Computed example of a mutant assay.
Amino acid sequence: MDVTTAAAALDRLEQVYSSRPGTVRALAEQGRRVIGVVGADVPVELVEAAGAVAYRLHGHPDVLSAEAQEVLGASLDPVAHSVLTQVLGGSLTFLDGLVVSRDSQASLQLFYALRELRRLEPHRAIPPLHLLDLLHLPTEPTARYDEVRLGRLADVLGSWTGQPVTAGLTASVAAVAELRHLLREVSDLRRGPRPVLTGTRVLRVLGAAAALPTDVSLPLLRRLVDGAGALPALPQGRRVYLTGSAQDHDEVYVALEAALGCLVVGEDTDWGDLALSADVGGADLGALARAYRDRGPAAATASLPRRAAWTAEQVRRSAAEVLLGVVREHDEAPAWDFPAQRAAVAADGVPSALLARQPYRVLATDLRSALGSATCEPVLSGARA
């Protein structure tokens, strides 16, 4: 395939990213069932097997209401405020249900707030809710616990859509496996000696895929991957590996690349490469439970040594020149990881810098200052470097 075909697919995926709520609403208006998802622990395989589109909800610094902040309290990750703003504002009424994974304290508080609001204020038209509580300890009891939780989720999804999960699970597992394979190939297009995609564009492709059914996303991704060899090489910029808070919008990437001339070659967060780390070994609940138990280490659920080792390996793999941590205010877990991550990459001679307690909208000037101060020296947990 030629560059025009790949470029057209890329443009379409970026358009989807920039208009995700509208794109998914249009799918709902066409008769598609849509299940909202909060967090990365909810298996897309189960949602698609139930005949629905899995739409991973996201926020934006411009979508924050005083009501949402009052309901949840100010001392919470602002992503939760932004998602609640959308629900209370009526922009997500097309959802047939909403599954919240207990992957962070903010997600858990969001679920409890929505459940109470749905009970006390039915006029809000908040969709049916379900909390998914998966554990990530590498033990067999954990796998059995998670399998039970996924069985309950499968029953709930079937009740929401009217389609039992069992009939479509084999096909959905295969489709999502291909999706992850293609997205990994897309992510690799920013690495290596001849990068052809920026980290910003990769982030947008991954975000678009989290809002589309696989029957729509897979043809676009195949066209992009097959035609990638003809895409022009990018100018060489400072190769940055990003850690810290998951970036559910692209402003940090745009600032690093468009304003500061860097190239984001990877990230260990679940709106990026970490979301692609689950490998499902079979079309059954047990295989799903083990895959999601063992997926790449998230800050809120994994041990410090495992996080640091995973980050260091990815920094080496991407030939990053600096590790940059960007941690939002009230999202404390990633800042506790950073000293161990810094020590792990310093062993390979890679400097690092941390921006902690950042607002939802990070300033390019602060990113520039952090990159200018990058060092291999130790830093106290949670401190600004």
Rank of each mutant, 00 (worst) to 15 (best):
V3N: 01
T5I: 06
A8S: 08
S19L: 07
S19A: 15
V24T: 10
R32N: 06
V34T: 04
I35N: 08
G36T: 10
G39N: 13
V42G: 14
P43N: 14
A50M: 04
Y55T: 10
V63K: 13
V63C: 05
L64W: 13
A68D: 00
E70A: 15
S75H: 07
L76A: 03
D77C: 12
P78K: 15
V79I: 12
S82Y: 05
S82P: 11
V83C: 07
V83W: 02
L88R: 15
G89F: 13
L95R: 09
L98M: 09
S101H: 03
S101G: 10
R102M: 01
S104T: 07
Q105A: 08
S107F: 04
S107A: 13
Q109E: 10
L110N: 12
Y112C: 06
L114G: 06
E116C: 01
L117K: 15
E121F: 08
R124T: 06
P128S: 12
P128D: 07
L131T: 14
T139C: 07
E140I: 00
T142L: 02
L150F: 12
A154W: 08
A154H: 11
V165G: 01
L169V: 04
S172I: 05
L182V: 14
L183T: 07
V186L: 00
R191S: 02
R191A: 03
P193E: 01
T198W: 06
G199I: 03
G199F: 01
R204Y: 00
V205Q: 01
A210R: 15
L212D: 01
V216H: 13
S217Q: 15
L220E: 14
P232Q: 04
G237Y: 04
R239E: 02
V240S: 05
Y241F: 15
A246Q: 13
H249I: 05
Y253M: 05
A259H: 07
D268Q: 15
D270W: 14
D273M: 05
S277E: 06
A278M: 12
D279L: 09
L285Q: 06
A289Y: 11
A291T: 14
Y292M: 00
R295D: 02
G296C: 04
A299G: 02
T301K: 03
A302Y: 09
P305K: 12
R306G: 12
E313H: 13
Q314V: 04
R317D: 03
E321G: 10
V327Y: 15
W336P: 09
P339D: 15
R342T: 02
R342A: 12
A344S: 01
D348A: 15
A353N: 10
L354Y: 00
L354P: 03
R357P: 00
Y360A: 10
V362G: 08
V362E: 07
T365A: 09
T365R: 14
D366G: 08
A370W: 03
G372W: 03
S373I: 00
S373F: 08
A374D: 01
E377L: 09
E377S: 10
L380R: 13
R384A: 04
R384F: 02
